[in-house]
Design a protein around this nucleic acid. Structure first.
Lengths: 341, 341
DNA sequence: CGTTTTTCCGTAAACGTTTACGAGAACACA
DNA sequence: TGTGTTCTCGTAAACGTTTACGGAAAAACG
């Protein structure tokens, strides 16, 4: 059905070697022959078989993004990634790479899936998200020497692989600064219970800023729960039971914030009136919720493009001859003031 | 680095043919040898090279999902697909297939991308979404004989390929029925301006139900705009300028509904009080908007699984020996009554 | 014990590329 | 004319599988 390089060769009465060289722009082929080959390729509707070239070159021309839904998080966590994926894919396409999205069942932490991708050499590199403080996936990949990059960083701060992260620490501090400036002193923080690193970073910034303002960090105002709506709903009442309840809450996640607001509503507490609410990572849900939630917004699409570049540079077959590779970048989160604080 | 079938053969002192047969569960291999091979594969950490087997078998063991963002729709259209993708991927993984998500830039209708996937044989089949009434992609794929399935259907009602769609016609009618039962007679309909087929189906159901209730279809109450928030915002005032303005609006899309509600708010019209608002396809945004929007909800994850099955059956290399293949399914949308009507 | 069947395995080709190697022809230069 | 260089191309191996084919050994059967 589909035409191969042999068809081209037969049609032009030349050898397949020459055809391949002509197609790949090598120097040792006559300008006229090249023209004829290119033309024949067009008329015969030829495109190279990926499996063939992958096998020969040992490169699949694709990268795998491990998308890992959290339990009960089928609707909320992933939209975050869409603009990111758009940027990522755009940059990869420029270099002729495809994006394979490997998506597991929610709650499946897919160490196994990752192994499969690596061992069957389905992709030339993988991209990890939801990085944890101690991330077994990172250990595995470094150990077997498979190229990868991460969206987020692990605890170690290892610079042996490219990573791009958001400055959750600064966002946490900025959120506190803003609330303090607006007169709040009792500020709660609610973050995911998993050892997702952004939760730690956020909390570190929160603590630091509080101390800077001479406000003591009250453990009763810090709570963690599942990183979904149910988690926020369940854990928000905890901080409200403090002897001296908060007048402001910073949520580390939009879904948790929505659950938290539901819990507040049931207590007759109105965000934006009786309680200041801030969310660290903005999503469309923050914008459309009522009241619209003040949140910190990442530049997702540019991040996707940037990480694609960093990833490309880490694959031997595609790495350009550039100088030192940038291994870590931390991007800012921009405050979007709305009605909830 | 990675171990090949040759390594196994050498290690066990048998031929690669036997190793392959043992691994693939063929009958003509001694039970004992098979055990040894399997064990060696485990200890040597062997997994088959995908490029190799793809090349030999002429099957890539992956399917491509063409995700096609609409202009200005980077945040709203795609989350719709996430639960669908989870279901799709789960079923594909069962059969050992990977999911390749091919995502273009917003507004890029990617006929070209599709050709590339097909011609380089990157996938064994493709899955199309956002089907249009006259869909060039469908024509192309049928013409070249490449296996595919669609989420949605085109005008022709062609049964030569598997398709799974939602019953937008019934949902449109149900929405009208409900509004009429609640006393409305002036009901507007707002749908996308593109020739996306679900827009037509919705409108057909809307019209049919209106006539059934003896209500004349007023063209002034029907408008179409870009399938995003801006489109809804722009086009909603049109129907409000009618001599006899509507008391209810049915939006074909969540993003358009959100834009429409914004426009209504600026006119001092409150959904749920001064205007009944219904949305055909429910998303988390409908739920969290204030007032929460009454909407029709699809069973996305099961749909993903089902379409994976239909797709698998259409690939020669994976089709089981089952009987007649189901080529078209239309699934219901379930009403979720909330506060906006 | 001879013949047929079954069981098991090795051999080698094939999938579609890319590329190292070498060779013939043309050309330049003395 | 002889030697060296440059252009251009064909040959063949290699990537890692799967599988058709055939053959040797073992088993079954008379």
């Amino acid at each position: 059905m589909a035409s191969s390089i042999h068809d081209l060769a037969r049609h032009l009465n030349i050898s397949i070697g020459t055809v391949s060289r002509a197609l790949n722009g090598r120097a040792d082929v006559n300008a006229d022959t090249r023209k004829r080959v290119l033309e024949a390729a067009r008329t015969l509707n030829y495109s190279p078989n990926q499996s063939g070239r992958s096998l020969r070159q040992g490169a699949t021309h694709s990268i795998a993004f491990m998308l890992q839904p959290h339990p009960g998080d089928q609707q909320y966590g992933e939209p975050f990634f869409i603009p990111f994926l758009i940027g990522l894919q755009a940059r990869l396409a420029e270099s002729g790479l495809d994006l394979i999205v490997v998506m597991g069942a929610p709650g499946d932490y897919q160490q196994e899936r990752l192994r499969r991708v690596v061992e069957t050499r389905r992709a030339d590199a993988v991209l990890l998200a939801w990085t944890r403080r101690e991330d077994e996936r990172i250990n595995y990949l470094t150990q077997v020497g498979f190229p990868f990059a991460t969206l987020g960083r692990s605890r170690s701060g290892d610079k042996s692989y490219p990573s791009l992260d958001l400055d959750f620490e600064k966002a946490g501090a900025d959120a506190v600064d803003r609330l303090v400036a607006r007169g709040h002193r009792r500020i709660a923080a609610i973050r995911p219970s998993l050892d997702l690193n952004f939760g730690y970073l956020f909390l570190a910034g929160y603590r630091k800023a509080l101390r800077r303002h001479g406000i003591e960090v009250d453990p009763e105002l810090i709570a963690s729960g599942f990183i979904n709506e149910a988690g926020g709903y369940e854990v928000t009442p905890q901080v409200m039971r403090s002897k001296d309840p908060p007048t402001a809450i910073i949520f580390n996640n939009d879904a948790m914030a929505l659950g938290g607001c539901k819990a507040l509503a049931e207590m007759g507490i109105r965000p934006g009136h009786d309680m200041a609410v801030t969310v660290i990572v903005d999503t469309p849900l923050c914008r459309y919720f009522s009241p619209a939630l003040t949140a910190f917004r990442p530049a997702l699409e540019p991040m996707g493009q940037r990480l694609a570049e960093m990833l490309l540079a880490s694959i031997p077959a595609f790495a350009g001859p550039e100088g030192p590779r940038i291994m870590r970048e931390v991007w800012p989160l921009e405050l979007v003031a709305r009605d909830s604080d």
